[in-house]
């Protein structure tokens, strides 16, 4: 089985190096005693991840309120999901979250990282670039729920954002930003960009450090301008990191829960509902455990499929590079 070499957990800033291919030559005979070391981890894994996942799969085929015995109903929950507008809305909002947490942060992050590294890191003291990087990265280290609560207050009708509009003479634009179904989603997206932007900036800046500076010097001597150097050298050189950022952020976007909980609880009128909040609400507020399980299983399936596609695309791109 090919283990993909860049997979990461959401919101996690490290990418493990690929497991090395065992050299046939020095390969020791497998030793059964090592299984003992796997035992505690395996038991815990089955208890906390394997078992519950299978059980959620089973529950998705039942009707259950959490007390008594679940009633087997086969695929009915899935059929109902298919006709549930909230379900479709929540997945459409996932696309919005991908724009806000993957597409825009990656694009802006690429440019910011290149500017910080190239135009500021080299022409001013490195500490200047480091301080600026820290400002962008700060939201990433905070509990995202707390950040969400601060933003929730800022965007309230009597909050700081409307205050700011008044102060600059745009008081006519005062608005209940999170309370209006038309503005809630764009505003939540803006907050998510703020939360997310630091991650690509930091990863891409680290990536740029391993790009050979001679490449840039040679291109510069050839008369290539900043943008051409960016496109011809920076982008291809840091493509592995771009894949990692793309994959981790996409998974994070599909799972987003805390900020939605803190900002809007999926409202108003489901305008900002997302699958994970929809599942939480169905489990614990509506007590439709079977239905909530079905939502969770669909979300899980989509995440796994998207990850596999991502990793395949990356492997293909690497093979193509290897052939050159």
């Amino acid at each position: 089985m090919a283990v993909p070499d860049t997979v990461a957990a959401p919101e996690r800033a490290t990418t493990p190096p690929p497991p090395a291919v065992t050299a046939r030559r020095g390969r020791p005979r497998p030793d059964r005693a090592y299984w003992l070391y796997l035992l505690p981890g395996a038991v815990l894994f089955l208890l906390v991840i394997g078992g519950p996942l299978v059980y959620t799969g089973y529950l998705s085929l039942t009707r259950w309120s959490g007390v008594g015995d679940p009633t087997w109903i086969g695929l009915e929950n899935y059929r109902n999901l298919f006709h549930d507008d909230v379900f479709w809305t929540s997945f459409r909002n996932t696309l919005a979250m991908i724009v806000a947490m993957v597409v825009l942060p990656t694009l802006v992050g690429l440019v910011l990282a290149a500017v910080l590294f190239d135009a500021i890191g080299r022409r001013f003291r490195p500490r200047t670039a480091a301080a600026l990087r820290a400002a962008f990265y700060l939201p990433q280290v905070l509990p995202v729920v707390v950040a969400g609560i601060v933003w929730g207050w800022i965007l309230r009708p009597d909050g700081a954002f409307n205050g700011l509009l008044d102060a600059v003479g745009l008081g006519a634009l005062r608005h209940d930003w999170l309370g209006d179904p038309d503005t809630a989603l764009p505003v939540v997206m803006a907050v998510m960009i703020w939360v997310q932007i630091g991650y690509p900036v930091v990863v891409f800046m680290a990536a740029l450090e391993r790009v050979d500076p001679e490449l840039y010097e040679a291109a510069e001597l050839d008369g290539a301008g900043w943008f051409r150097r960016f496109r011809a050298i920076t982008l291809p050189q840091i493509r592995p990191e771009t894949f990692v950022v793309g994959l981790t952020c996409t998974i994070a976007a599909m799972k987003v829960f805390g900020p939605i909980y803190a900002l809007t609880r999926g409202g108003p009128e489901n305008a900002t509902n997302v699958p994970s909040y929809f599942a939480y609400y169905t489990f614990f507020k509506k007590l439709h455990v079977g239905y909530g399980s079905a939502i969770s299983m669909v979300l899980t399936l989509i995440i796994v499929v998207v990850s596999v596609l991502f990793i395949r695309a990356q492997n293909r791109a690497e093979r193509r590079d290897g052939g050159l």
């Binding site: 957990a9 991840i49 959620t56 959490g66 489990f283 909530g292 969770s296 899980t300």
Partner: peptide, 13 residues
């Protein structure tokens, strides 16, 4: 296991 949404585990847990 890293990719799983926690919603897929939470109710049984």
């Amino acid at each position: 296991a890293n990719m799983l949404p926690q919603e897929a585990l939470i109710y049984p847990l």
